[in-house]
Design a protein around this nucleic acid. Structure first.
Lengths: 245, 245
DNA sequence: CGGGAAATTGATGACTTTCAAGGTGTGTGG
DNA sequence: CCACACACCTTGAAAGTCATCAATTTCCCG
């Protein structure tokens, strides 16, 4: 009976030695500041697949960084209609949604077994006063969140369904590239259901677009693995305001 | 030759005596803090209709509060497709979009002659350190911005066009009510073009929905003046996930 | 007062959803 | 370890929603 060898048993490590420190909160901090930040970070959160990091209306307990795994945030209205807002990958920060009222305005659900680093609410304000680098980085992360929302709004409001998927794949490609991974071959961390909801279309529509793009030799998709065969065509598709090439 | 008597000639007044101080940045500040804030605020910005408070890629010069008038923010992609992101009414804050890169990621255009109060970038960080109340209020305002984006995403991603308009009208109704105005009769500060774009639909579609809702005695619309005749029906429409009543 | 932008209305067609069925992979319990 | 159940994904056909094109009216600004 040995313990499982998945990420859930991973040992907590310091921000300094974390492979994500260039993209995560520590990115703008001095060595000195990092030590201060480190003291407050709670690395003990292990969230299992389909379980919540936090839920709507829950009182904010701080902000969170994804250490490994993946998290989706989504909002629901009174009728139960749900909209996926963002997919958070390792190094991403979440929890800003509680800044308005002090309670979370969305659900954060793990898409797979996930490790989370938490900066507790209590020490957060103090840290911001003490660490100029943290303030700067926090501003940067908040801006990233806002930019993301703006781009998704542009996509949902103005693009056709196939353009939306193309745009999404390109963004994901860039994301992986910036983290040293292949920009042509990567894994979708979410189900078709979650992705189609995020992109504001029916699951069937997403499936059909994937099939069509595969037929046109733009991408190859095997379950959740995506290979971009023709980056140029994909980019052309994402920018095709003048319908039909 | 007397000077024009429109809002553009309005005299700058103190935050303390401003009618908006309960909803604007001063809201969470002590009297002491307000004096500090006041020193840094630049109230001289007068933006004429159709002119920009700031434009995309412009280096951030601070954050802005709408004193009078109205401002729309919008983002455009490389193809010139444009998406209106938000309408900012008196008391609303804008400029957070530059938090990511230091340059603005959207355009902010005045919908009518508008007065703007500016907190310059240079003093902003210092003020945040010095004034706990300002930090708290800033957090609140940032959260409001994020919440707004989330709700718009839900609307664009999950609702039908008529549900989107109903939702928008109800939000505007609540907004005016919370500021002491009528919740049943108010003015749309934007053109049909801007509103239809914001709601992710064609102008013609918006026009048709307005006509239909008028025929059904839910609203009366005369140019930019809206009267809500049947609040219950409007709310039912906004929540009709089970299509067709 | 005139030109032109803004708004409305109608007809048509494209895109997307919905409903339905079948296929494929995964996980759990025997 | 295998089998079965179930969730996930794909594909097809039909229907609906919404966009586009076009024409007309209304209203605003110079």
């Amino acid at each position: 009976m040995r313990p499982p060898t998945n990420t859930m048993s991973q040992k907590a490590i310091s921000c300094e030695s974390c492979s994500l420190n260039a993209v995560c909160l520590p990115s703008g901090l001095t060595a000195e500041e990092l030590i201060q930040l480190e003291k407050s970070i709670d690395k003990t959160m292990k969230i299992k697949k389909k379980e919540a990091v936090f839920k709507t209306n829950q009182i904010s307990d701080g902000i969170y960084a994804v250490k490994s795994g993946a998290v989706k945030t989504s909002i629901a209205n009174s009728d139960g209609q749900e909209q996926v807002l963002e997919f958070h990958l390792p190094g991403d920060i979440l929890g800003f949604d509680a800044f308005n009222s002090g309670t979370h305005s969305c659900d954060a659900i793990a898409l797979e077994d996930t490790l989370i680093c938490k900066i507790p609410e209590a020490t957060f304000d103090d840290l911001c006063i003490a660490l100029p680098g943290l303030r700067k980085e926090l501003k940067h992360q908040l801006g990233k969140e806002i930019s993301h929302h703006q781009n998704l709004l542009l996509s949902l409001g103005q693009q056709q369904t196939d353009e939306r998927l193309a745009t999404f794949l390109l963004q994901l490609s860039l994301h992986y590239q910036s983290r040293g991974f292949s920009n042509k071959e990567f894994v979708l961390p979410m189900s078709r259901q979650d992705l189609s909801n995020y992109l504001g279309m029916a699951v069937e529509t997403l499936s059909r677009i994937i099939s069509r793009m595969t037929d046109e030799n733009i991408i190859k998709v095997e379950r959740r693995v995506v290979i971009i065969s023709d980056m140029d065509k994909l980019e052309a598709l994402a920018h095709s305001s003048c319908k039909k090439t």
